[in-house]
Simulated scan of single mutants.
Amino acid sequence: MHTTHTRRRFATALCALVALLVPLTASTAHAQEKRLKSWGNNRSGQLGDGTWTDFRTTATTVLGLTSAEVVKIVAGGGGAATGHGLALLTDRTVQSWGANGSGQLGDGSVFSHNAPGQVVNLSNATDIAAGGWHSLALLADQTVVAWGRNDHGQLGNGTNADSSVPVRVEGLNKVVAIAAGLNHSLALREDGTVWAWGNDANGQLGDGSSASRNVPAPVTGLTGVTRIAAGCNHNLALVGPPGSGSGDVLKAWGYNAAGQLGDNSTVSRHTPVETWGTWPGGVSRIAAGCNHSIAVTGSDNRLAEWGQNTSGQLGDGTLDNRTTPVPVPGLTGVELVAGGREHTMALLGDNTVRSWGNNNSGQLSNGTTTNSSTPVTSLTALTGVDKIAAPVGGDFSLAN
């Protein structure tokens, strides 16, 4: 009897232990799921980690989003302490978080939130973009919607009234790519033309004037475009197939005080001009920070940069502005690139991230707040990174 009683007690204890271990194991597996990461300034909740912590010098986790469900990430912002993030999900909905004073989160309110929430009335998005205080989405029918600040007509709906929910951009169809600057927007149509709307004070609409527009208009003399990128107040366009060879042409227009157009001048341009460069091996990708520009070139995917360099965001070891492209020394195998207000990010072929430039808010994610004029390794807390994002006018970073 004593032996039987002991065995029963052991079996009961074992069942209880198993009951405890099963949920613990499931919870542990869930906790180890790959998650979207963020770092840098967080004063507007733009890191999406559920806090308002001033800044993070290494990666924190964006709440509620697993990497597997995230198709694309973008970041917006119009100042060091402002910013918002967007994530396009596999179900074609969009999540948003961060600053929302102009309705740029698209949730029907103007209240900022420090964790992701869903953009309303949006269920068929295929691409996203984020500007200073506004956001864009490309839909499956190749039309575009926008939400947020609209004081310069950057929503493209024929008004100058802000909208906290997505509104249709007028007169656009057959769109294949979108981009957003500080207060203007771009769309690339499948016929290779580029259309622009919003603020035009520095010629960033490329129509030869300085008149802002609240509906899209074509950029003058630009055809055969395959890639677009928008900085704070300037734009880039790649003419010809990406990486096609030394015949690639890169065009730029808009604000140019720091040389970000790359035409060996500091004169702003109201229509596109050619960026200086022979591009051996071609240009495969382009990106723009606030006042600097970036191109991935050659068969070994090197980086060239030009424009503002006051924080070392050109990565060439100096703080000198450049009016023509200069190489980032020692960096090859670049798969993706992103530009922030005064920092740059690159995703390498080994799925690690390098960053350089301004680091006052920890946006380089190397555990310090020290600027770097050469690339440093970002501590992403991730293996197998395949997406990165930085805000055109902000000081934080995203990786997935």
Rank of each mutant, 00 (worst) to 15 (best):
M1K: 01
T12K: 06
C15R: 04
A19H: 02
L21F: 08
L21E: 10
P23E: 04
L24S: 04
S27C: 06
A29D: 11
A31N: 13
L36P: 01
S38A: 15
N41Y: 06
T51R: 11
T57D: 07
T60M: 01
V62Y: 12
K72P: 08
V74G: 05
G76T: 12
G76C: 07
G78E: 10
G79K: 09
T82Q: 10
L86D: 13
L88C: 11
D91V: 10
R92C: 04
T93C: 03
T93I: 07
V94L: 10
Q95C: 05
Q95R: 15
G98T: 00
A99K: 03
G101Q: 04
S102A: 15
S102H: 15
S102K: 14
L105S: 10
G108K: 08
P116K: 11
P116H: 03
G117S: 12
G117C: 00
A125I: 13
A125E: 09
T126G: 06
L136A: 06
A137K: 02
D141N: 14
Q142I: 05
Q142Y: 01
R149P: 00
D151A: 13
D162N: 15
S164Y: 01
V165K: 01
E170Q: 13
L172A: 05
N173S: 13
L182R: 05
S185Q: 05
L188D: 00
E190K: 14
D191W: 05
A196H: 06
G198Y: 07
N199F: 10
G206I: 09
G208E: 00
A211Y: 10
P216Y: 09
P218V: 11
V219L: 00
T220I: 02
T226G: 03
A230F: 10
L238P: 05
S246A: 15
S246E: 12
A258S: 12
D263N: 11
V267I: 14
V267N: 08
R269S: 06
W276V: 03
G281I: 00
G282A: 09
S284F: 12
I286Y: 01
I286C: 05
A287M: 08
G289Q: 08
A295M: 09
G298N: 07
N301M: 10
G312D: 00
G315T: 03
P325G: 09
P327R: 05
L331F: 05
G333D: 01
V334R: 01
L336F: 02
G339Q: 02
R341C: 01
G349E: 09
V353Y: 11
S355M: 12
W356I: 04
N358E: 14
N359L: 10
L364K: 04
T368C: 03
N371Q: 11
S372F: 08
S373L: 05
V376T: 13
V376M: 06
L382C: 12
A389F: 09
D395T: 12
F396I: 06
L398Y: 13
